[in-house]
Structure formats: structure tokens, C-alpha cells
Amino acid sequence: MSTWQKLLNWFDERLGLTTIYSTVLDRKVPKVNWWFTLGSASMILFLLQGVTGVMLTVYYVPSPDHAYDSINYIMNEVAFGWLIRGIHHWGASLMVLVVFAHMLRTFYFGAFKYPRELTWITGVFLLLCTVGMGFTGYLLPWNQRAFWATTVGTSIAGAVPFVGEFINEVLRGGTDLSALTLARFFSVHIWWLPAAIIALIGVHMYMIIRLGISSVPTKED
């Protein structure tokens, strides 16, 4: 037995790597087409957003005094800042698009039906979280576009009968957009929603592995 294999065995005994390999990777699945890559594409995009997002927080300061200047600094002074922010910016749009397309694929292929109803429901949660990431992330650059779009966006909540004004103030952390709004949007954007998304992806993936990916429906289905 080579040293390499010994080392592998040592870890396998403790981590159960071969069990993970046989249940997660080495499993039989139906033959599917290219539309079935949208789910993993969504996940790759989430990972990319996570990596670039963590990098952005190295310089970004979530306060009305500094948010704009710090992003300006990232874009113009920091080496490759334009690349990191560029990927994060475009990745956000692409992720919404890909997650939505993934949802449509699931719908058109009837993949949400028995026994995958719960996978669909976690998927809808994931779609909402993705849109929520888009909404909260939009404010963070604290530029004109961000400020006014969020002003209008949160005002929509104000249209809810009776409690609208209250919801609006909870969203904004007060009657106006302020440092409080920026801080809570930032918090939701980097802690709450990512945590929810990670948990939901976990459940989503568990069910996909447990139930197997759906097959392309045939005429008899």
C-alpha cells in the first residue's frame, strides 16, 4: 500500500469518503438533456457571488458616508477591483435569469410532480431569496439609482392596506432611507439571505440526491 493510499484510508475511516462518493457521485441517473444543467449553473453562480461578495466586503463600508466612496475606491484604485465588482454585478443579473430559467424548466418538464413537490417548494423559496438578494444588493452602492429605486421599491409595501406604512418603516428602519436602511439591507444581503440560501440549497440537494433527478418525460408519462 502506497503512502498516498494509506493517507486516503486514514481520512476515509474517519470521514467516510467512499460512502459520500458512492451516494453522491457514483449514482445512476436517467439520461437527461442540456436543460438539466440550469440547477448546477444556479449553484455555481451562487458560489461565485459568494466568493466575490466576501472579497467586496474587504473594502466596502456600509454607511451613507462611505459606501459610495468605498465602491469608487474598489473600482478605481484597488487592483482588479473592477473585475471582482464586475463579476458580482453581472453575476447578480445572470443568477436571477438562470434561477428563473431553472424554475421554468422544472415546470415545463413536470419535474415538480410526485415525489418532488417539496423540492419545488424549497426551489420557490430559493427563487424568492435570489430576488431578495437582488433587491437588497441594489441599494448598497448608495448611488442615485440605488437610492431612488429603493425609495420606490420600499414604498410599494406602503400600499398594503392598514399595515403598509408600518411595514414600510420596518423595511427602511424609519420613515426615510438612511444609514439604518443601508445597515439592515447590508445585513440581510450578507448574512440573513445567504444563510437561508445555503440552508435551502442543502435541503434541495438532499432531496435531489435522495429522490434522483427527474427524467425527461416521455409520451407515456
Binding site: T52, M55, E77, V78, A79, F80, G81, I84
Partner: peptide, 16 residues
């Protein structure tokens, strides 16, 4: 493509 720029990105203030 991500990792190498990331190093430059992180050490940037020290190099300028």
C-alpha cells in the same frame, strides 16, 4: 482567473 487577481486585490493597499 479568480484567485490570482484576488491576491492582487487583497494586498493592493500595501502595494500602492
Amino acid at each position: 482567473v479568480i484567485g490570482l487577481p484576488a491576491i492582487g486585490y487583497l494586498i493592493s493597499p500595501a502595494t500602492k
